[in-house]
């Protein structure tokens, strides 16, 4: 797994586990593994699963989502003192929508081909449950810096699972990764067209969830 910088201590109030970890490291482990939004909670796959037939599209989409999550969490956290409780959902939605519009305009201006490929899915980041979920569960009641990293690692955990979906799909379906033909798969391999069609996404994600959960369950048994 990705290792976080353990030197960075953020809060003194962190409960001490058996292994002493920094708050940042804990946020990383939570977001990337223990509480991974996709295979633990199976949330928010709607807006991105559709573009996982090409690795490049997935990477751009994940980058947009991670950035939006981190910055939205930061903004929600900065505004948490001045947000009335009753309208907080609306405020959060508007903050998220603001960042998504920035991403959309930037893509349209600098990378119009990609913008066309992704179609409406950039806009659909707004309704991604993960961002709202992190804002509601964490950023709303925590200081800005931890909120930012919480959102960042949640987004990265999400990206890592979706890239794991995208790589086999493009490899088995088209024989390439990032558009570059792979040695065996582009020549001798009988391409599985079904993998780049919608059912392929369902099957790949299901197998991945199965594998990761089996792996995780074993780890938990050992540590218990």
């Amino acid at each position: 797994m990705m290792s976080a910088d353990p030197a960075r201590e953020m809060t003194a109030s962190a409960p001490k586990g058996p292994k002493k970890e920094s708050a940042l490291g804990r946020a990383a482990i939570e977001g990337l593994w223990n509480n991974n939004p996709v295979f633990r909670q199976v949330l928010g796959i709607c807006s991105t699963l559709a573009v996982t037939n090409l690795v490049l599209n997935t990477a751009v989409m994940c980058l947009a989502l991670t950035g939006t999550t981190a910055l939205s969490c930061l903004t929600v956290s900065l505004l948490r003192e001045w947000t009335p409780h009753r309208v907080r959902m609306m405020v959060q939605t508007l903050i998220i929508a603001f960042y998504v519009i920035l991403v959309d305009i930037a893509l349209k201006a600098y990378w119009p081909d990609m913008s066309r490929n992704l179609g409406p899915y950039v806009g659909l980041i707004i309704t991604n449950c993960i961002i709202m979920g992190r804002c509601e569960a964490f950023a709303r009641s925590n200081p800005p810096v931890p909120s930012f990293f919480d959102g960042l690692f949640c987004g990265l955990g999400y990206s890592f699972v979706l890239l794991l979906v995208a790589v086999p799909r493009e490899l088995l379906g088209m024989g390439s990764i990032l558009g570059i033909p792979m040695p065996y798969f582009s020549t001798g391999w009988d391409k599985w067209i079904i993998m780049v069609m919608p059912p392929g996404a369902f099957f790949t994600l299901a197998c991945l969830i199965w594998a990761l959960r089996a792996f995780q369950a074993r780890g938990e048994e050992e540590s218990a």
Partner: peptide, 17 residues
């Protein structure tokens, strides 16, 4: 065990697709 819940639901969805 690992496939219970969302896992099997995704496989069913794939077959429906």
């Amino acid at each position: 065990k690992g496939l219970q819940g969302p896992g099997i639901a995704l496989i069913i969805a794939g077959l429906m697709a």
